[in-house]
């Protein structure tokens, strides 16, 4: 559908280089990266709005690298909507249709179609500055899809919204993608958003593409420390994997030995997802191979869940629900046990 070959973009302070992506027809593709990684510029380069240093962009088998943005059939939705403030909602939507010389009758059809699709029929006569954040984002989406683009680019569409609206717009995006079968390229810094929406995810950071894969692959098998840290795996350790005489492979870190799956040896990073670590007041007898005593050093309240830092050593970050937090009477300084499976420890370079 769209292929980006060895794209390099000069961002002034740093260079985004060697970006190679192949997005399939109808895919919901996420580019995940921290703020300032050049995600917006990458989208603008694909849309032809930002000059590239080198590389190629192919859309449906045609090279569009030097093609003007108005001829690419790629629409963009920015984080903060960027609606035309002097035009009504209807005129915002009609703008692209007029530019594409769509007939007046067809303009009406398309406006009705997108208005119904996004449930904004009652907003058509309003000016953008009278709309709420969620409404603006829907109008921006409506404007972008009314021209029937081949590719829809969305830049952090949920970041500027409050949590509740975010949920609605996220569902809206998923629904749009399913209903229209449109190819979407979505950039975000939010891992959960990426997992929730993406059929595949590309992680960018430090000026280049770090990993491309399904959410599951990124989630379970980050290929680098950068990706692991980004993938909210808060437990990333550098240590040594060695085979023991009893046939187990262990990973040594800070004097503690984690039993791990596989037979790899050598110096590696290991990651353990916080939600895969159990906390208990007594040692647990189970098939889980790793069980260590430790002291609670930090408690981070996230509302319905809490991150508990336990020093075994090393320090492990564990995710618990508020219910178990209260039931176990967890508090700073308390001695507890942490338990996790050998397969929960993921090794990478």
């Amino acid at each position: 559908m769209i292929e980006v070959n060895d794209l390099s973009v000069d961002l002034g302070e740093f260079v985004l280089k060697n970006i190679t992506l192949a997005i399939k027809e109808g895919e919901y593709f996420i580019i995940l990266g921290p703020t300032g990684a050049g995600k917006t510029v990458l989208l603008e380069s694909i849309a032809g709005l930002y000059p590239i240093k080198s590389g190629e962009i192919w859309l449906r088998g045609k090279e569009v690298t030097g093609v003007e943005p108005e001829k690419r059939k790629i629409s963009i939705v920015y984080q903060d909507h960027v609606l035309f403030p002097h035009l009504s909602v209807r005129k915002n939507i009609v703008f692209g249709l007029k530019m594409n010389k769509v007939t007046a009758a067809e303009q009406d059809n398309r406006v009705n179609w997108v208005a119904e699709l996004l449930g904004i029929g009652n907003l058509l006569h309003r000016k953008p500055d009278t709309l709420s954040g969620g409404e603006k984002q829907k109008v921006a989406l409506a404007r972008a899809i009314a021209t029937r683009p081949e590719l829809l680019l969305v830049d952090e569409p949920l970041s500027a919204l409050d949590p509740e609206t975010r949920e609605t717009v996220q569902q809206e995006l998923r629904r749009l993608h399913q209903a229209l079968g449109i190819t979407i390229l979505h950039v975000t810094h939010d891992f959960e958003e990426a997992i929730a929406l993406g059929s595949r995810i590309a992680v960018i950071g430090e000026g280049s593409l770090m990993q491309v894969g399904t959410p599951e692959e990124i989630f379970r098998h980050p290929n680098s420390e950068f990706v692991a840290r980004f993938a909210m795996t808060r437990n990333v350790f550098l240590g040594k994997a060695t085979k023991q005489s009893n046939g187990d492979t262990v990973f040594q870190v800070d004097g503690t030995e984690f039993v791990i799956a596989g037979e790899t040896e050598g110096t590696y990073h290991a990651s353990i997802r916080p939600e895969e670590i159990l906390i208990s007041t007594e040692p647990i007898r189970s098939s889980a191979r790793n069980c260590f005593p430790g002291t609670i050093t930090q408690i981070q309240d996230k509302g319905s869940t809490l991150y508990i830092t336990v020093n075994a050593p090393p320090e492990l970050s564990c995710l618990v629900t508020r219910h178990s937090f209260e039931e176990l009477e967890l508090r700073k300084g308390k001695r507890i046990y942490v338990t996790f499976k050998a397969t929960s420890v993921h090794l990478f370079d």
């Binding site: 849309a47 963009i76 021209t147």
Partner: peptide, 12 residues
Amino acid sequence: RLEKVARTLGAS
């Protein structure tokens, strides 16, 4: 970016 959006929507 208003100009940019306009461009992607087909405006010269």
